[in-house]
Amino acid sequence: MIKKKAILRFDSTTVEKPVTYYLIKKYDLWINILQARFEPSLGGKLVIELRGEKKQLDQAFAYLKEQNIRVDFLEEEISWDKLKCNHCGACVSICPVGALKMNRETYYLEFNYQDCVVCGYCTDACPVQAIEIIF
């Protein structure tokens, strides 16, 4: 499962479309509405968190593009406080993509930011709150 945050922007032509319904029903996504602001018949914006399989998320974004709904991703990244981290490795078996690895020589944790999909599971798994999601 991958988590993404996005701002969906609607205009007068798209504001009537039941987009959230389609995202859930058609693409099996978990939708969490973080913010919604609409002027009836004018348009508005919807800030949502989408969670689902990568393939379905990609298809959902293609669908939104087709519908002429502008999507801006809220860039998120994981912040790892190396000084606070005690290198226990509680996060290692929780990370679904293997971005957090234990070095088997030094027994220090290694974090490969390129592989990270910002799912946020490690933030719950860390006993000393050394990992956070930042915007």
């Binding site: 005690n86 290198h87 226990c88 490795g89 509680a90 996060c91 290692v92 078996s93 929780i94 234990m102 088997r104 030094t106 027994y107 220090y108 798994a125 006993p127």
Partner: peptide, 21 residues
């Protein structure tokens, strides 16, 4: 080693104590 075998399944391991410390 990072994974163990239970019932023929490879299972990733985590330690909650710090070996480095």
């Amino acid at each position: 080693s990072g994974q163990i075998d239970i019932k023929g399944k490879k299972i990733p391991t985590s330690s909650i104590s710090s070996y480095a410390k």
